[in-house]
Design a protein around this nucleic acid. Structure first.
Length: 981
RNA sequence: GCGGCGGUAGCUCAAUGGAUAGAGCACCUCCUUGAUAAGGAGAAGGUUGGGGGUUCGAGUCCCCCACGCCUUCCCA
């Protein structure tokens, strides 16, 4: 039989009688244009404040913003960070908390100062000629400018927060608070002034903390230098002494300019040293500095290499050497360097490179300093000034710069190295020289090399090992009481705090909060006076930290409160900006009304283990004895799609502003939501495309719901008990999803939340539920219980899906929500996740459906086979005969089919009819390897094709008035005809 | 160099030491044309970075190597 033969002469087009999904919601989003309009609307409605008002009395959840630096445009990393934060606050708000978010900015510090200085240089002005107040004002303006730029960029990302009232480290109230926090350290005695070698940038003329340097390749001049042995103790026998006559201890260094600062030579007691006499030299290429007959003391393991470098072609090893018995002279002895050079034992000396002896300049290296002090010496020579030039008192080299600090060659070697080398040649001390490329610390701002330089600086003491009351011990204990996401962050932060040196907090800069200290002239002790402190803080609140630099500040703050106010010196150093940011908890969480301290969460990139997580922890532990946070969330860095760093030179940089312009921010947000943010993420064109594809999928699922729910209202709802099994299955799934999605949001696991939602849309809605229920939705009489039940469930799905997605995709969910419920004032973001009745959960029913969908799987496979054999095209042309041997499968179907098994199965399989048989299928039946006991034979469905539902049916059963459609369709059409005349 | 972390399909992600390593997307093929710049199905795609080891059994635990990222130190 063919379709044509069974059809009546004039075929009615039933399309208009169908209920097809209808919606104005466009398939294409046009996000780049639409998003700014949503932002405008939210701003107009003042959603953030509405939420605050509506959340009064709810439990608070506070994510405290780590302040970005107010300089430059956003990059993909900062964008990702803020989007993640937005996930946190939005999801917690919808979980039922009062989740506030106060964005903040870090405004002080070297990078801004550096930029402002650059501007001056361009105008031909020297920074030192600019009055301090004017300079600070310029810095403030510069920070304000970038703060505004960044604020707009952050808002464009859809990040919800109190943008109109952010915190900044440069607000007067903040500057007052920072000074107040600093003075707490001073009052409690945790602050001290020490003189030790610190990393110093001559170009910026400031000390730098670890966090402010970066390592880059640098070519250094290396020198091998003879230090003549000047004496051996009397206890050494004469033979030995004579051998030592004219011998030299050989050292190697990559920093010739530190030779004037040399005061000792370090050796290691576990290294064996030998006295070598040079018997021949290789002068074929050039005349080496080594001389036949000279005696050198070098580590035995390193001698050969040294000999090679020095062109020594023949030698005799004369004797073992006990380094501890030696004293040397400085190579420049007789020219102002007339002091003995002792040999000091030090564990830091190794045999990896060099000569086994380490030239020791206590003012220019941490280990040098330590060894020097450990041997009872106290004076630390000061050889190089803040400008990186030798002090005037340094013989031979006064005024020469180590690193150029001005002009085009800024950052390159100054004349110091060359002058020292020349002088070494002149005095005959140089044995050899060379060049080495190695990684070397550079300033993160000027990119110029830094030097180690001894200078008095202010430190916060971390405390001695074993001291349970030390700041370090308190911080470590606080880490133990903090929840880390992921947990490995705990180890990381602990290890860093455990191993870090005292906190160097003074900088010789201008733009920041000063160390508000007065030092007693002569004694070096700093004033600890609560009344003075109060005066300072009060002044800062009104005038900002500029008050410190105003004329007569000293008199203003001290007079009347101390005996002799002129006997003090006002400290002019500026606080490390990490100290500023370490105080954000104090002036934001504590000082603002309606916030709480400590924060629930700090969320930053893993680099902040050494930055903000740590500065905040130390600051808070030093002043309050505990961490300012209960939880720390760390995310990785954004890499290019090949896993390498993004860099302009490689051309693999993805700019978030570009994505906003071309794809829309929502795509960026989806990328964040689908990425494993706790590891490094990858970003590139293909990855954006994947996110955009996912977006379309989600959008279409919601679009279908909107279309299907056209005209649906609550009065048409069906009670769960009156619903078909399939609808109750979907309710069950919603209850499970509710639990899982909430759990994912609580665990800050957005990837999980997203993949749950995404998979639900794809696998359970689009490919399963919607597909099966299309027939009932389109063709059933409008009031059929099945159709009403389906729409009821779709409504419940809609309500949940939209809110569950809302924290991740705020723009699109708002659009979806308002398409369904038009309003000038409403917003999906004012809602919370809907309560989901626990009695929707039905595990027994779900278990039955697991069996049914397993059968469905086999049937779909069999249909595909029939399709490729050209037996059928559409699945409605088929009547699968299912052979299921397992009685439990039958029981499941019986339980869920509600008395109409064949129709039930046909619906589930989306076929016109279906037959279920309890026996083993024939050999030629279709089977799947992982579904034993189930097989399917596909036959063409008998009967005629219904002109309306396209299902095949027995025409003998047709309604006389509508002979070409099924009875169900006839009923629907009759209703439609009645309604439409 | 030290230390930490990481790697699973073209892409994004799963997988208490336990069966033939799973999903989605993309690609390809087919169906549908009543979600249509959509929808459905199927196929293909893997030496789980490489190599050893422990184990009845390893993506998972141990060791080594190479790689990437972070961190730290640095050739004094």
């Amino acid at each position: 039989m063919t379709d044509d033969a069974s059809k009546p002469q004039s075929v009615r087009d039933y399309r208009e009688t169908l209920f097809l999904p209808k919606t104005d919601f466009p398939m294409r989003a046009g996000l780049p244009k639409a998003e700014p309009k949503w932002l405008e609307r939210w701003e107009k409605l003042n959603i953030y404040n509405q939420l605050r008002a509506a959340s009064q009395g709810r439990e608070q959840y506070v994510l405290h913003d780590g302040p970005p630096y107010a300089n430059g445009h956003l990059h993909i990393g900062t964008a990702m960070n803020k989007i993640l934060k937005d996930f946190v606050t939005r999801s917690h708000q919808m979980l039922g908390y009062n989740a506030q978010y106060i964005p903040g900015w870090d405004c002080h510090g070297l990078p801004i100062e550096w930029k402002v200085e650059e501007q001056y240089r361009k105008k031909g002005r020297n920074k030192d000629d600019v009055p301090l107040a004017e300079f600070r004002k310029e810095c403030r303006d510069y920070a304000s400018h970038w703060l505004d730029v960044q604020r707009e960029e952050f808002k464009r990302l859809g990040v919800q927060g109190e943008w109109g009232n952010p915190y900044t480290t440069m607000a007067y109230s903040s500057e007052a608070a920072i000074a107040g926090e600093f003075l707490k350290f001073a009052q409690s005695g945790q602050l001290y002034r020490g003189s030790k070698p610190v990393m110093w940038s001559p170009v910026e003329q400031t000390a730098l903390a670890e966090a402010e340097v970066e390592y880059a390749d640098h070519t250094s001049t290396t020198i091998w230098v003879r230090f003549p042995v000047s004496g051996t103790p009397v206890s050494v026998n004469l033979e030995r002494a004579s051998k030592m006559k004219d011998a030299s201890v050989l050292i190697w260094t990559t920093t010739p300019w530190t030779i004037p600062g040399n005061r000792a030579i370090s050796y290691n007691t576990s290294i064996s040293y030998g006295l070598y006499e040079v018997t021949a030299i290789d002068d074929s290429d050039f005349t080496p500095w080594s001389r036949v007959g000279e005696k050198l003391i070098v580590a035995d393991s390193l001698w050969e290499e040294v000999a090679k470098t020095a062109k020594v072609s023949g030698f005799t090893r004369l004797a073992d050497v006990d380094a501890s018995t030696l004293t040397c002279a400085h190579p420049f002895a007789g020219e102002g360097y007339d002091f003995p050079i002792p040999l000091l034992a030090g564990e830091h000396v190794t045999e990896e490179a060099g000569t086994g002896f380490v030239h020791t300049a206590p003012g220019h290296g941490a280990e040098d300093y330590d060894v020097w002090l450990a041997n009872g010496y106290k004076d630390i020579p000061e050889t190089v000034g803040p400008d990186g030039a030798y002090y005037d008192h340094v013989p031979l080299f006064s005024g020469l710069q180590v690193i150029r600090t001005t002009g085009k060659k800024t950052g390159k070697d100054g004349p110091a190295n060359a002058a020292v080398v020349d002088k070494l040649v002149e005095t005959g001390a140089l044995l050899a020289r060379g060049r080495i490329e190695h990684s070397y610390p550079h300033s993160w701002r000027s990119k110029a090399p830094v030097i180690f330089r001894n200078t008095p600086q202010w430190f916060i003491a971390l405390g001695e090992e074993g001291d349970k009351n030390s700041l370090r011990a308190k911080a470590l204990a606080a880490i133990e009481n903090t929840r880390f996401y992921p947990p490995r962050g705990k180890n990381r932060l602990s290890a860093m705090v455990d191993g870090r040196p005292d906190w160097l907090i003074s900088r010789q800069r201008a733009w920041g909060v000063p160390l508000t200290l007065f030092v007693r002239a002569g004694t070096g002790e700093y004033l600890q006076n609560e009344a003075v402190n109060a005066r300072i803080i009060e002044a800062f609140k009104v005038e900002g930290a500029d008050a410190w630099f105003a004329e007569n500040a000293q008199e203003r703050f001290l007079s009347g409160l101390v005996d002799d106010w002129e006997a003090y010196e006002k400290v002019e150093d500026i606080l490390d900006v990490w100290f500023d940011s370490g105080c954000t908890h104090a002036f934001t969480l504590e000082n603002r009304e309606n916030l709480k301290w400590p924060a629930d969460l700090y969320l930053e990139g893993t680099d902040q283990h050494r930055g903000w997580f740590q500065s905040s922890l130390l600051e808070s532990c030093g002043t309050r004895g505990r961490a300012p946070y209960d939880g720390v969330f760390t995310h990785g860095f954004v890499m290019a799609d090949d896993g390498r760093k993004m860099s302009k030179s490689l051309g693999n940089v993805i700019d978030p502003a570009d994505i906003a312009r071309t794809n829309g921010v929502e795509i960026l947000r989806m990328w964040v939501a689908s990425s494993d943010v706790q590891d490094d993420m990858r970003m590139g064109p293909e990855i954006i495309k994947t996110a955009a594809d996912s977006y379309r999928k989600v959008r279409n699922t919601l679009r279908y719901l909107l279309g299907a729910l056209q005209g649906f209202d609550e009065t048409k709802q069906v009670e769960p008990k009156d619903m078909p099994s399939l609808e109750r299955l979907m309710l069950h799934r919603l209850s499970v999803m509710d639990e899982e999605v909430r759990a994912a949001y609580i665990a800050l696991d957005y990837k999980r939340a997203f993949s749950l939602l995404f998979a639900f849309c794809n696998e359970e809605l689009s490919a399963f539920y919607f597909d099966i229920r299309k027939d009932a939705l389109y063709c059933d009489p409008l009031k059929s219980p099945r159709r009403l039940a389906a729409r009821t469930v779709m409504d419940l799905i809609f309500e949940r899906l939209v809110t569950w997605f809302a924290p991740l995709m705020p723009f699109t969910m708002e659009e979806v929500w308002l398409t369904r419920f038009p309003s000038d004032t409403d917003s999906v973001h004012l809602r919370t996740f809907p309560d989901t009745p626990t009695d929707w959960r039905d595990d027994a029913l779900a278990a039955d459906w697991t069996r049914i969908t397993n059968l469905r799987r086999v049937v779909l496979g069999s249909l595909e086979e029939a399709r490729s054999a050209k037996l059928i095209g559409s699945s409605l042309e088929a009547m699968p005969q299912v052979f299921a041997q397992d009685a439990a499968d039958h029981a499941a179907i019986t339980a869920q089919a509600e008395g109409a098994e064949a129709e039930f199965l046909a619906d589930v399989f989306i076929t016109s009819q279906a037959v279920l048989t309890a026996q083993e299928g024939p050999d030629n039946a279709f089977r799947l390897g992982d579904a034993p006991g189930v097989s399917v034979l596909v036959e063409k469905a008998p009967g005629v094709k219904c002109s309306r539902s396209w299902k095949y049916f027995d025409a003998a059963n047709a309604d006389a008035s509508y002979p070409d459609i099924t009875l169900r369709d006839a009923k629907a059409v009759r209703e439609w005809d009645t309604a439409h005349g």
